[in-house]
Design a protein around this nucleic acid. Sequence first.
DNA 1: CATTTCGTTTCATATATCGTAATGCTTGTC
DNA 2: GACAAGCATTACGATATATGAAACGAAATG
Lengths: 287, 287
Amino acid sequence: MTDGRTTLNQWADAGRCDLPRDTGTDQALSSTLIRGLEILALYSDSEISLSNSEIARRLGLNRATVSRLCKTLVHMGYLRRDPKGAFRLAPRILSLSYPVLAATRWRHRLVPPMRELAEMSGGNVTLAVMTDDQFVQIQNVGNPTSFPHVPESGVTGPLHRSASGRALLSLLEGQALFDKLAELRQKFPAEFESHAELTAASITRCRTEGFCTSYGDWRANIVAVSTPLGVTDDGLRVALSCGLPRFSAREEYVEKDLGPRMAEAAKAMRLMGPFVPGPAEPGRAAI
Amino acid sequence: MTDGRTTLNQWADAGRCDLPRDTGTDQALSSTLIRGLEILALYSDSEISLSNSEIARRLGLNRATVSRLCKTLVHMGYLRRDPKGAFRLAPRILSLSYPVLAATRWRHRLVPPMRELAEMSGGNVTLAVMTDDQFVQIQNVGNPTSFPHVPESGVTGPLHRSASGRALLSLLEGQALFDKLAELRQKFPAEFESHAELTAASITRCRTEGFCTSYGDWRANIVAVSTPLGVTDDGLRVALSCGLPRFSAREEYVEKDLGPRMAEAAKAMRLMGPFVPGPAEPGRAAI
DNA sequence: CATTTCGTTTCATATATCGTAATGCTTGTC
DNA sequence: GACAAGCATTACGATATATGAAACGAAATG
């Protein structure tokens, strides 16, 4: 039996990593559009308002260029100006997300069991889907005031360094998993290496026991339990997770009680969503 | 006493409309960025998947141009490809919205009273904010399966042709209201005219009675009651609304019971949010 | 009041973007 | 199974367009 770190690297070795090694400016991509989107992506819960020069500095752009791009974004209604003249995200940006929310209407059917889990555990229960090298939360249930961060749709996190991410990885089959791991290893070499052991163990555990756990791997003060739900008919990989403040999460409770309960709940929830029948259930073959 | 239509036009006449009459392509705006964002904005709950040529047709662009823009959007993670090769919005688009949701964390405090209203009325209760010429819903409470459309954050609608919109307009003061009306009249001349009577009456009613109603003005089968909540410390105008399927909304109930209840609830909710003390309360001067 | 910082605009230049046309792929039909 | 038709993508030259330097006005800072 090899250790998890070796295993994960072997898996990643088996993946083709066709990232085109980022040859400076890719001729086939529209750089102006990229820059505009990068401006929108600069914002976060701790970065509410950004000045022209701040944006220019962060993205390494000329101030004049930023001025024009921001003017365009304001014109489109996705940015607005605050009293000081700096730029903020405008509420209209929500309208871009709406189609995704509408297309995942099945979330609503999963809310009651999610609420049960949230009340039972006192934590925050989320649905997350995989997008490229991240997970994105699409549904949150729980008491949102009790957490240091703001749990909402749109929260993103790393695939290889969080319970949600690892549960999502466990939904990948064979070559698809190898490819994804190869991609992650190339993009985040150091992180991949330092978390390889936990990631390998979590993927395996999701497949045998139906859940995995994480103690502050992503957010230092959050303990998380996550379980793979399945793949929807339009190809979204979905995981169910529960986050608890570290101080209120005894390890034995998490491992022996909450984890198995989550796996059990997931079993029922798989029948409530549009998940394609497949090898998503725990207890299946190793890879 | 003049009629409402005349009144609204007089108000609009008093507004400066500094829209630069759209002189073809504005040199100061980045057309590539605009086109890319227009692609993302094409999606809706009824347009889940769009092919390259479909996008090109709708936006009047060359197919080769669309191919490149979409490739860029896929590269950024905001679009993904479905099995047929067409483009869909990727879940990552949600991450752009997250900062707006996080910045309006006060919504959570308003959810309990919203839930009460939803259960009492059997309808769907929403918070909406103004952005340019639209409202955007930022919070939904109710039973989402009972409606023909999908109530979610990100739903947008017209300011001058919906209860939410009119309640938001009623939050504008003096010249700001005139300017907004002038803008709306220029952008939607026919609609503005045909709904002028109702819009004027609703704005006035919001200010005297604290709520307004709409019978299918926006969505044909939805009756809505809306009440202005106020302006937040960072300048967002917020309205509280309740939508009911038309068949279950007796006019007398809506006007004599639900409306006043909403206005009453709003009074309490104004103390729970970050609303700046100002002339948002009903009973204030005419304009 | 002087000085610095910042945001916007102007303008010439370089180049990134566009559209045509050709290629290659998939789909549908006989 | 072969052919045809439609569609998406790529290549490439022409051109419109985005860029960055510099200048300007405004606002904050000393």
